[in-house]
Design a protein around this nucleic acid. Structure first.
Lengths: 217, 217
DNA sequence: GGTCCTATATATAAGGC
DNA sequence: TGCCTTATATATAGGAC
C-alpha cells in the first residue's frame, strides 16, 4: 500500500506474496502486542502458512492456552455472537468507500466550478458555459454571498456593540436562498448524470436568488 | 500515534482506553482480513475484553474452528516452536530503536559540522573552534575532496575515452586517507563523549591528510 | 458513548544491494 | 534470499460535536 496502492486480492507472484506475508505478519504481531499492552486485554493470534511448518502464534505458550481455554469453555452460541462475518465485513467497507467516493465527487465539482468562477472574473465571459455549469456557478456564488454577509454581520457586532438601529447601514438587497428550508428545490435532476444518489448541492435547476435573476432573468 | 506519539503502556484513562481499544481492534481485524486475502493463508484472532461479554473473533465460526483444530492437533513441542516470546520481541524492538538513535546522532553531527564549514567559508575563521569540531571538520573536508576527485575521474573518462596516458593531467597531489584500511586510526576517543559505541566516522584525533596537515602541521 | 475531522505516526510496495 | 531505503498509503490520537 505504498509505492502503489495494492489490490486486495490473492497475490499471484510467489516471491512478492512471500515478501508481503513476512512484512505484514511482522506488522500484525506488533499491532496485536500493542493492543494487548495499551488496553490490558487478552488477545491471541494464530497464523498457518505454507511458509512455515509451525503455526506462528501470539502471545507465548502459556498466554495462548489461557485465551483458548476461555474460548473453548463457552457454549457455541456465545462463541459465535461476536464473530465477524467476512461478507458483512466486506459490505461495510464497500459502503464506506462509496461514501468517500460521493464526497470526493462533490469536492471535485466544487473545485471545477470555483475555477470557472475565477475564469469569469478574468474576463472570459459566460457565453461558453452550458446550463449545468451555470447552475452550479449560481449555487457557488450564493454560498460566497452568504459567507460575505455572515462576515459583515460579525464585523458589525464587533465594531459597534450595541449599535443604535438608525446608525447601522441597511442590509444589502441580497436575500440568500435557504435551501434547507425549501426541499422541493432539491428534487430536480442534476447536471452530471448521477441522479439523486449524489445528493450534491450543485446542479439544481432553479436559483431564485439575486445572482440567478441577474444573469438569467 | 498521531496527534501525539503515545507511550506503549497501559492507558489509565478509562474513556481514552476504550476509544483506543475500539479503533485499534477495528484496524487489527482489517489487517488480519487483508493478510488472509493477500497471501491466501489461514489465520485467526481472538480478543477478550471487559468491554464485550463475548470474545471477538476472526474469521467466522467455521474458519476459526478449522484453524484451532489444526493447532490443537499438533504436539506441544511443535506448537511452541514458533511462538513469539514477549520479552525477546521487546528486546528486538529496543535494539532496532538503538540503531536508529545511533544513526540519527551521526546524521546530526554531520549537519552540525557542515554548518560550521559554511560559516568558515563565510569568513568566520577557525579561531573559535575547539579540537573536536576541528577534527570532525577535517574529516568532512576529506570526504568532500574524495567526492570531488571521484567526480573528476568520472569526467575524465567521459570526455576522453580512452585517453593516451601522456595527455591526461597528472592527478592532484591529494591522496585521500582510506580509513577502512587503517583500523588503528579508529581507536581514539571521540569528541562528544559517546565512546566507541557510537562508531562515528567523526572526531578521530589524527587526520593524516592534506587538509589536516595544512591546518595543524 | 459515537461520529467526523485532520495532523502525525506507522505500515509497507517497489526497487536496489 | 533478505535487508535497507524511500515514497506513499494507512492507521490513529486528540479534539469538536
Amino acid at each position: 500500500m505504498t509505492r502503489k496502492k495494492v489490490k486486495l486480492a490473492f497475490i499471484t507472484n510467489d516471491s512478492a506474496r512471500k515478501a508481503t506475508f513476512r512484512k505484514r505478519k511482522k506488522g500484525l504481531m506488533k499491532k496485536v502486542s500493542e493492543l494487548s499492552t495499551l488496553c490490558g486485554i487478552d488477545i491471541c493470534a494464530i497464523i498457518y502458512s505454507s511458509y512455515e511448518s509451525q503455526p506462528e502464534v501470539w502471545p507465548d505458550n502459556r498466554g495462548i492456552h489461557c485465551v483458548l481455554a476461555q474460548f473453548k469453555g463457552m457454549p457455541e452460541m456465545e462463541q459465535s455472537k461476536k464473530m465477524v462475518n467476512q461478507e458483512s465485513f466486506i459490505r461495510q467497507r464497500i459502503a464506506k468507500a462509496s461514501e468517500q467516493l460521493k464526497k470526493q465527487h462533490k469536492e471535485n465539482r466544487e473545485k471545477e466550478i470555483t475555477l470557472v468562477m475565477y475564469q469569469c472574473l478574468m474576463g472570459e465571459g459566460l457565453q461558453n458555459l452550458m446550463m449545468p455549469d451555470l447552475n452550479d456557478l449560481g449555487w457557488l456564488l450564493d454560498q460566497k454571498l452568504k459567507e460575505i454577509n455572515k462576515r459583515i454581520d460579525e464585523l458589525k457586532k464587533t465594531t459597534a456593540p450595541p449599535p443604535p438601529p438608525q446608525q447601522v447601514a441597511p442590509p444589502p438587497p441580497h436575500v440568500p436562498t435557504d435551501w434547507t428550508n425549501n426541499p422541493s428545490d432539491h428534487q430536480q435532476m442534476n447536471s452530471f448524470g448521477h441522479g439523486d444518489e449524489m445528493m450534491l448541492p450543485f446542479c439544481e435547476n432553479n436559483h431564485n436568488t439575486m445572482w440567478s435573476n441577474a444573469f438569467f432573468p
